[in-house]
């Protein structure tokens, strides 16, 4: 059969927030084998299963919407794949849903995050559009560069006393790391050493027209 594109939506939480994207990639492959998923292998000199992640998740950030595309060679019901993967993974990598991959990852324009910190942190974050710029210092190969990240912030909305939701650029050409965003807010809020004590959760994806990407 023609390999079928399957999308796996999973959570990355708990102890898994300390595991880098690269290590996650290494972890998933054996798990697929444990789950006996009929993976399609590339036909090269060094055959390996075809797997594509929507986007890497920064270290220390949780997620309820990680997306991974695989190709399978035998028709297998999605619910069956989900069930087997749940058994082959720990709860910190919970597989929420498996479905045929239709929309392309390139259509992703924004990522949505929930940030839990303290009240004053949320106050500063929600007032971010009161200023004309939000400048951060980025360390690169050619020294430190100042960048204005405000254009990459689509919206910030209060969702609780100590909690807010933000929509940040997450396309191939423009990507804002939520950790960097929180650092900028922390600096603005005058938090010492700029290390915000926050919990960040990626909760969803949006297309250019702000409709949900799945």
């Amino acid at each position: 059969m023609v390999p079928e594109n399957i999308r796996i939506k999973f959570h990355k939480k708990g102890r898994l927030i300390y595991i880098s994207h690269l290590d996650l990639c290494r972890t998933v492959c054996p798990a697929m084998i444990r789950a006996k998923i009929p993976l399609w292998y590339t036909e090269g000199f060094n055959p390996h299963p075809k797997m594509v992640f929507a986007q890497p998740l920064p270290l220390f950030v949780e997620s309820r919407c990680e997306l991974l595309d695989i190709k399978i060679t035998e028709p297998t019901p999605c619910e069956e794949i989900a069930k087997r993967l749940r058994q082959a993974l720990t709860d910190d990598l919970y597989v929420e849903e498996v479905y045929p991959a239709k929309a392309k990852f390139q259509e992703i324009e924004y990522a949505k995050y929930t940030v839990c910190g303290d009240e004053s942190f949320a106050d500063v974050a929600c007032g971010v559009f009161d200023s004309e710029h939000l400048t951060v210092e980025k360390k690169g190969k050619s020294g430190t560069v100042s960048t204005d990240i405000l254009p990459q912030i689509k919206s910030v909305q209060r969702t609780g006393e100590k909690e807010f939701e933000c929509v940040l650029s997450a396309s191939a050409s423009s990507y804002l790391n939520p950790m960097l965003f929180c650092k900028a807010i922390a600096e603005k809020a005058g938090i010492q050493d700029g290390e915000p004590d926050v919990r960040i959760i990626r909760t969803g994806w949006q297309k250019k027209d702000m409709s949900e990407f799945r």
């Binding site: 102890r15 898994l16 300390y18 595991i19 444990r34 720990t90 290390e195």
Partner: peptide, 19 residues
């Protein structure tokens, strides 16, 4: 949790592996 964010390769210290 705070310490784990400061050290290199925190995955060494978190356990929770499959198996």
């Amino acid at each position: 949790e705070k310490i784990l964010k400061k050290v290199s390769k925190p995955g060494r210290y978190t356990g929770g592996e499959y198996g």
